[in-house]
């Protein structure tokens, strides 16, 4: 297919989205990530039964914490798609990229840069 997706999306591969922990998402923001999105298999289609459902809960937890810290919970998002659905993967990447560009940079990254 050779589909193009925004170059500022950095992919971190996991065996299953169930492997992602809340702290992984938080550390990404602590280190200056502007947004994080988790792309899992379709709900009900997890090879490990409930990995993507666990990921969804963790994304929700991260969202609450990011709201609390003032970074903004909307910077983290869970998406689901079928493993073979490349065009949808691209669509989600574009959607997330546009959303983050609209929100602007991670505020703590700006504060860190200003202090440096």
């Amino acid at each position: 297919m050779r589909l193009q997706y925004p170059a500022n999306v950095k992919i971190i591969r996991l065996p299953c989205t169930g492997k992602i922990d809340l702290i992984h998402i938080l550390r990404a923001f602590e280190k200056g990530a502007d947004g994080v999105y988790v792309v899992g298999c379709l709900e009900g289609g997890c090879h490990y039964i409930g990995g993507n459902l666990r990921a969804r809960k963790r994304v929700e937890q991260a969202r609450k914490i990011l709201d609390l810290t003032g970074i903004g919970g909307e910077r983290v998002q869970m998406y689901n798609l079928s493993a073979s659905d490349g065009p949808l993967f691209v669509q989600y990447a574009i959607e997330m990229n546009e959303k983050i560009l609209e929100l602007g940079p991670n505020p703590i990254k700006l504060k860190k840069d200003a202090a440096a």
Binding site: I23, L26, R27, T69
Partner: peptide, 15 residues
């Protein structure tokens, strides 16, 4: 880990 990270982000965001 989660609490420490949350506090770090809170304080950083407050400058």
């Amino acid at each position: 880990e989660v609490l420490a990270s949350t506090l770090r982000m809170c304080f950083l965001n407050q400058g």
